[in-house]
Design a binder for these strands. Structure first.
Length: 532
DNA sequence: CTGTAGTTGAGAAT
DNA sequence: ATTCTCAACTACAG
């Protein structure tokens, strides 16, 4: 009787692709070289418990479900398949290691604090079971650890500094997909006996989506296939690629003015390293091309910038105890927060963006700027953490490091400090959509308002409102704040908060600091408890 | 210490 | 389309 094969596991988490996947290639190569000795098992661990508590909206679950289905298909073309293992990683791995006779586990590293903790626990379990573990950094172009080491142990906190560090680093080699396995899928004895051949199937949509009524249109389907198709389409116009400058793209065009590769990069359906290589090839042919931070390469490097900063701060998604983050006395306004989150602020441009987000799961980067500024330092004076939570639920491309980093940026809590530059919820959108077509699409109750007042419906007389079929206070809300007034007050509040933070940082005596002009007592006390 | 730059402000003046 | 003013931030280079 033949000796039972030993199993090599690749654990997919992010990185839901077969191209440029070093941890996957490792086990394929090892098994391909000795097919009689090894079985390959690519797994994805699905914890049914997280469906109840994780802040993931229906559109995001659908994207994941489609990505898993596509990954299974791509693995089948390589004579393998995807095994979905249901349970918590710390519960299922001891079992798998024993039953599958596992020799090696590989996975892609992840800097998110919960992932770091989870991976450490699994590595300990593997060690206890005599299973070797190999990890690879392939979610980002540069390894955050190396960038930090080259910057003398600290993450760069300006983009220019970050650029100067990574420009000296070697680029990783981009890998093709693995060779087909010679033997195909190997059943394991105990599964055949137990008749459980279907327990590892991909989840169906209704297994993941608990509230299907929240599903919007499926404008950006998940999966590696779609990601690579979208990449090809985006790069097909080389002049567009070479001259791309983010600030010159419209936040409110009816079709995206940018690539929308972000959801695919987030899940790793698309390799950032591959995108970078493809861009580089194109730019070589176009000597006069745009450059970071505004170019397409620059966009990839922003992602790297935030990943690097987040990698060394477990509190990156919070104000308190976060080394990068300014302490600002935000206020709680659940009614305003709810109006913002559901597109009912009474500012048509803001509401259109928030409704597009809820329906489609993606909005332009500058649209994110407009609504983030509005929620925080611009108008509502609500904590960026609240906005972060809403984006986490709704954005297909939600990525822990990028979301937190950008919220800190927009709220002038970190990385960006020119808090007196405030986006106008009226003027900003007009620059790229004078007629308000975008508002008409996403806030249809205002569709009959003329261009002259669609950004400011409160300027229409009651008679006009009736004529346009949308009366404020009945068919569409009154604006919840007056931007012209509150944004000036908020600049003063920011100025006071910066002053306090400066004094705390430079070690001014506690009793000399005039907290009351800026910071509430509760915020001060919470800060104090963190500093000790 | 000083000067300057900083992915993407608004509004007015030229 | 570019340039200035508004009021004034931080990080970094020199």
């Amino acid at each position: 009787m033949a000796v039972e094969r030993r199993t090599l596991i690749h654990w997919f988490r992010k990185g839901l692709r077969v191209h440029d996947n070093p941890a996957l290639i490792q086990i394929f190569n090892k098994a391909g070289a000795s097919p009689d000795k090894f079985s390959v098992r690519p797994i994805f661990v699905l914890d049914p418990g997280i469906l109840d508590w994780m802040k993931v909206g229906a559109n995001r679950w659908r994207f994941l479900q489609q990505s898993l289905l596509d990954l299974d298909k791509n693995l089948k073309e390589l004579n393998s398949r995807l095994y979905i293992v249901r349970g918590k990683p710390v519960d299922i791995f001891p079992n798998l290691f024993d039953r599958w006779n596992v020799e090696l586990l590989t996975f892609e590293t992840d800097i998110e604090p919960y992932a770091v903790k989870r991976d450490k626990a699994v590595q300990d379990i593997a060690a206890a079971h005599g299973v070797k573990v190999d990890t690879h950094c392939s979610h980002t172009i540069y390894n955050p650890e190396i960038v930090i080491a080259k910057n003398f142990g600290r993450a760069p906190i300006t983009y220019q500094k970050f650029l100067s560090v990574v420009e000296k680093l070697k680029l990783p080699k981009v890998l093709d997909k693995p060779q087909r396995l010679p033997n195909g899928v190997q059943p394991i004895a105990d599964e055949l006996e137990m008749g459980q051949s279907d327990v590892y199937e991909c989840p169906t949509l209704d297994q993941l989506v608990k509230r299907p009524q929240e599903l919007g249109i499926n404008k950006f389907p998940g999966g590696e296939r779609e990601a690579l198709r979208r990449l090809d389409t985006s790069l097909s116009d080389e002049h567009w690629v070479a001259s791309f400058e983010k600030p010159n793209t419209a936040p409110n065009s009816l079709e995206p003015s940018t690539t929308v590769l972000s959801p695919y990069l987030k899940f790793g359906c698309l390799s950032a390293r591959l995108v970078h290589q493809r861009l580089h090839e194109i730019l070589k042919r176009h000597p006069k091309h745009s450059k970071p931070p505004v170019s397409l390469v620059g966009q990839l490097l922003w992602r790297e910038f935030y990943y690097t900063a987040a990698a060394v701060e477990p509190n990156f998604d919070r104000m308190l105890g976060n080394v990068y983050c300014l302490q600002i006395p935000w206020q709680e306004r659940p009614d305003h927060l709810d109006a913002w989150a559901h597109g009912r602020t009474g500012y048509p441009f803001i509401d259109a963006i928030m409704r597009q987000l809820r329906q489609e799961g993606w909005i332009h980067h500058l649209a994110r700027h407009a609504v983030a500024c509005f929620l925080t330092r611009g108008d509502l004076w609500i904590s960026w953490e609240e906005g972060q939570r809403v984006f986490e639920e709704l954005l297909l491309d939600h990525d822990w490091a990028l979301n937190a980093g950008n919220w800190m940026w927009l709220s002038a809590s970190a990385f960006f400090h020119q808090y007196f530059r405030v986006y106008s919820p009226v003027a900003f959108g007009k620059k790229t959509d004078r007629t308000g077509a975008y508002i008409r699409k996403y806030v249809p109750e205002l569709a009959k308002y003329p261009a002259g007042c669609i950004y400011e419906p409160w300027k229409a007389t009651l008679a006009d409102q009736r004529e346009f079929g949308c009366v404020l206070g009945i068919d569409y809300p009154h604006r919840i704040v007056n931007h012209d007034i509150v944004h000036k007050e908020n600049i003063k509040r920011m100025s006071a908060a910066y002053k306090i933070n400066r004094e705390v940082r430079t070690g001014k005596q506690e009793d000399e600091i005039d907290y009351d002009s800026s910071m509430s007592l509760t915020t001060r006390q919470r800060n104090a408890s963190f500093e000790t």
